[in-house]
Simulated assay, not measured.
Amino acid sequence: MPRSNLSPQHRAITNERALERRVAALERRTFAVPVLGEDPPADSVCNLWIVGSQLRYRDASGTVRRVATT
């Protein structure tokens, strides 16, 4: 059945199933946090890293922050 002939409800269900598959694929992906000797430069694509024993990230304003633990 051509996509243009699908009812709005069927399109919504099809889109929801596609999103569920994409989320499931992301959940199965491995994730690694790089261990660096120093903070990466501001223009780096790296936005989460470890320096020493500190987990760090760059916030939306570009400021390097340390993840605090409780």
Rank of each mutant, 00 (worst) to 15 (best):
A68I: 07
D39P: 01
T69F: 15
R3H: 10
F31S: 08
R58H: 05
A12R: 13
E27L: 09
R17E: 06
R29G: 09
A24N: 11
R56S: 05
V23A: 06
A18M: 10
D43Q: 10
L19S: 06
R58L: 02
P40M: 00
N15I: 03
L6F: 10
L19F: 12
P8H: 05
E20V: 12
A68Y: 04
D59S: 05
R17H: 06
A18D: 08
P41G: 05
S53L: 13
G62P: 01
P2M: 04
V35I: 12
Y57Q: 05
M1A: 11
L19D: 08
N5A: 14
Y57R: 11
M1S: 14
L26Q: 12
L48P: 02
L6H: 09
R21L: 15
E16N: 11
A60K: 15
R11C: 02
L55H: 02
E27N: 13
G37N: 08
S61Q: 13
T69D: 12
T63V: 09
R56A: 01
D43Y: 05
S4K: 12
E38S: 14
E16K: 10
R3Y: 11
P8G: 07
N5R: 15
S61G: 05
W49L: 05
T70Q: 14
Q9Y: 13
A42D: 13
A32I: 08
A25D: 12
D39Y: 00
V35D: 02
E27W: 02
A32D: 07
S7Q: 03
C46P: 00
D39H: 01
N47R: 15
A32E: 11
I50V: 13
H10G: 01
W49F: 14
P34E: 00
T69N: 12
L55K: 04
V64D: 07
D59Y: 11
G37C: 01
V51H: 01
A25N: 08
C46D: 04
R66M: 09
Y57F: 11
V45N: 14
A42V: 13
P40L: 00
A24D: 10
H10L: 14
L19C: 09
S4Q: 15
R65M: 07
N47F: 10
G62F: 02
R22Q: 10
A32V: 11
E27V: 03
A25Y: 05
R66S: 07
R3S: 12
L26T: 02
L48R: 06
V23R: 06
T14P: 00
P8K: 07
G62D: 05
L48K: 03
T69H: 15
A42H: 07
I13K: 08
M1T: 10
L55P: 00
P34D: 00
T63L: 14
R56L: 07
R65I: 01
A24M: 04
A42F: 03
L36C: 04
N5W: 15
A24I: 03
C46G: 02
S4L: 04
V45C: 09
R56T: 03
